[in-house]
Design a protein around this nucleic acid. Structure first.
Lengths: 210, 210
DNA sequence: TTTTGAGTTAAACGTATGTTTCAAACAGTT
DNA sequence: AACTGTTTGAAACATACGTTTAACTCAAAA
């Protein structure tokens, strides 16, 4: 199956390069060279560069989406009518992410950086695509957060949710650089788990503020 | 003085377009067209596109830098040996930003999006430039935060500082979109001041977590 | 009035990009 | 072995980009 190999190699290369340099700054020639694949392969297998970008996201978010859904399903079946705490919710999401990205060391950073790019870059077409594709998961998590923070005004909860999202996306996406700084300035090494361990209490305290 | 006018018009146009589409996605032709200026004007006045990008940042960060410095100076002269709370520190920064961006309605979002881009995009040359240019302000603010959170371990404080930075950069840079969602989903309008009013307690609670 | 020099303009340059083409190579079926 | 549909390969295509050039404008100095 040379086809699958080619497709996978393209996705692997594109994923890394997109996360490292952004979408516009990464050319198909760079991608196909790193993937050791002919230039025309991208247009043959994906149709266009835009479609390649979307395919990268689908491969990333698909398993993540399913994992969060299924683990939430399992928990609700095992412990019905339980109200999850913010920490619980965050741990569900964090565990799914760790599971999806495990194997590759810095794939979590790639994941978050791609998410950040999707949110900021790409005039609409990518954000629209993701919003329509993953709206139901978003709503489900939001409903859990609502139950966990009953005293919060809806508008303020909305903003605090995005504050959390921003912390995670921004920090985890620059994790390599920040970890390098930590190692240089504090003579300490931080694993991804360490950083997530720092992050979750911060987020939980933030959303419960006041 | 047609010269100053041209330079300013280029900076205005570039600032908006960079924030909206990123650096690589914004061409000099788009900029000069919007600025109603000849294409060659950018290379004539700035030398290159890279230099233009840096000039945009200098015009943004220069006044901000000076304002934070001077207001901190003034406060330390008026109330020496006072330990600022986290809220106080954040208010100093927020006030300087509001002051720099006031006039244009969404210039705060542009500001933050440019900062985010500088952090994620731009292979080094921009980040290096900003780090060397504004290291002293960074260290000063960090020292204040350290005094305000004496019980925190240095490494954890470092991470929490960047969690705060991420919240602010991410949310404020997508403020237009998020405000539109709020208006659609909650039938409520949020001003920039409202969002900052939501943000500061979140950040303060986060950095004080546990 | 002539000269000077910074500023502007239109056109061109070289390069890099995404995409297309079409022939060759391949795998699986008859 | 011959055929068929799919995948690869090298080359070309058209376009968009950042940059450079050289002619031109025009106000201020000489």
């Amino acid at each position: 199956m040379a086809q699958v190999d080619t497709v996978t190699r393209i996705l692997d290369a594109a994923e890394e390069l997109f996360a490292e340099h952004g979408f516009a700054e990464t050319s198909l020639r760079t991608i196909t060279t790193r993937a050791d694949v002919n230039l025309a392969a991208v247009n043959y297998h994906f149709g266009s560069k835009k479609a390649l970008i979307q395919a990268v996201f689908v491969r990333f978010l698909g398993p993540f989406y399913k994992l969060v859904e299924s683990s939430l399903d399992a928990h609700e079946k095992a412990h019905p009518d339980t109200i999850l705490s913010i920490e619980d919710i965050l741990r569900f999401v964090a565990r799914a992410m760790a599971s999806v990205t495990q194997g590759d060391r810095n794939r979590l950073a790639i994941f978050m950086r791609l998410l950040g790019l999707a949110y900021n870059q790409g005039q609409g077409h990518l954000r629209k695509f993701l919003q329509s594709e993953y709206r139901s998961l978003f709503k489900r998590v939001m409903a859990l957060i609502t139950k966990a923070t009953p005293d919060l005004q809806p508008v303020e909860r909305f903003w605090r949710f995005h504050f959390m999202l921003g912390s995670a996306a921004f920090t985890l996406s620059s994790m390599e650089n920040l970890r390098a700084i930590v190692e240089h300035d504090f003579d300490t090494k931080c694993t991804e788990e360490d950083v997530v361990g720092y992050l979750l209490p911060f987020l939980a305290a933030g959303i419960r503020a006041k």
